[in-house]
Structure formats: C-alpha cells, structure tokens
Amino acid sequence: MIKAKRSNALVAILMIVCGIVFVSPLYICIVMALKTPQETALSVIGLPKSLTLDNFREAIERTRFARSFANSLLVTGVSTVCIVLMSAMCGYVLCRNRANRFYRAANQLLFFGIMIPFQVIMIPVYRMFKELSLLNSYEGIILLLIGSSIPYATFLTTGFVRNVPMDLEEAAWIDGCSVWGTFWRVVFPLLKPIVSTVGILHFLWMWNEFSMSFIVLQKEAMRTLPIQQYHFFGQFSVNLNLGFASACLSMIPVILFFAFTQRLLIQGVTAGAVKG
C-alpha cells in the first residue's frame, strides 16, 4: 500500500509539473507584453524592469483593436443566438416528425452537412459571395457561420429532444396551443441543458473561427479579432511587444469566458463527442 501511495504522489507531481509546462507560454505572453524592445533584446524570458502599459495603449491603436473586437462581438453574438434558436427549432421538428418523408430526407441532408469540410465549399462560397456582394459584409459571414454550424447543432438537439417526454406537449395541445406556442412555452424551456451546451460551444468556436472569416472578411474595417491579428502578426515590421500586448488583450475575454463556463464547456465537449 505504501508503494501505491508513493507512486500516486509521483503521478500527481508529474501531472502538476506538466500542467505548469502547459500554461508556461502564457508567462512569456505577459512579460513580453510588458517589456520594451530594448529589454526584449537583452532577454526574451526575463522580467520587465518597470511596469508600463504603453504597449497596450499602442497595440490598441495600431491593431484597431476596438473595431475588430466590436466586429468579433457582433458576428459571434448574432450567429451564436441564431444557431441556438434555429437548431433547437429544427431539432424539435425533426425529432417529432420522424415518420414524415420530407423531414427524414432533410435529416439525411443535414447529416451529410456535418461531414462536408469547409475546404470543399471555400472556392464556390467565394464565387457566390462575390456575385451577391456578400464579401466583407456582416450578413455574409454570419450567414456562412450559421449555415455551416446548423447541422451539428441540430444533431445535438435532436438527440436531446428524443428523451423529452411528450405528455406536456400533448397537454398544451389539448389546451389549444399552436405548434409555435407549444414549442416556445413548453418545449424550449425543457431544452435548457442542450441549449446552453450548444450556445457555449458555438460562442467559443465562433469567437475563434478562422477559415471562413479569412475568406470572407478581408477589408480591415470588417475583420474579426483572429483575422486582424493574423494580418498584424504577419507584418515584417511587427513590434513583438505590441503583438503580445494585443495577444494578451484578446485573451482576456476568453479567460473570463473559460472561468465562468468551464464546467459546462467540458461537459459540452464530452457530450458532443460521445454523441458524434
């Protein structure tokens, strides 16, 4: 038993050390964001000599941080809300109408949609958006983000609705509720667990989304944070300290989000994987 205890302690220490190694890049981010280029030239890992927030101020100006932050917030917010509501609506109808041929075919098509990688529609989306003048527009990117997320989000909801008992719906029906009334007043409140899972996962995914935004949002004024940072980091003249200041700033909302939703987020990832 003593041997087992000792090996347990060893594993624990090993895990904690690995965990520290895992988050250590964040230390570099923070010290780099606080240093001047002269201090960086001396050592990239050393601590800064004095605390100054100049890097942050300059990074906010040079990367048009406020603008891309607002873009990110708008695009992520609108698309996540739409994904959550529409996938719940779709999932409910699909699950309750499994006998209907039209909905069965639609379900098949959505399943096919989960499998389709974005690369396959990248070039045609570019062509279509160009013709419809949807490139560099909020409508365009939001449409694309919702459309490509609906299949998986619907799939998650359908699985959940299957376990929601129908008694309540039937009672609402007898009382004269319409389909919409039944859904919003009776069913939707019952879907809260899956709705929060879908919402949290997609908020994070949409916030970090790169591939689609990269194709659609090219004008600087329209770019979301990841895209703006991609272009800023790619400049040869980039001042690394400013880059890290911008990186740290963009991490703050993610850290807050992570702190508040960690448990649900981890549950969501697991639930999604087990069902997928």
Partner: peptide, 10 residues
C-alpha cells in the same frame, strides 16, 4: 429558417 440558411450556405 435554420434549414434554409444551411441550404444557402452549404
């Protein structure tokens, strides 16, 4: 609503 957006986008 959801299905049409999926159809248009994908």
């Amino acid at each position: 609503p959801g299905f049409l957006i999926f159809a248009i986008a994908v």
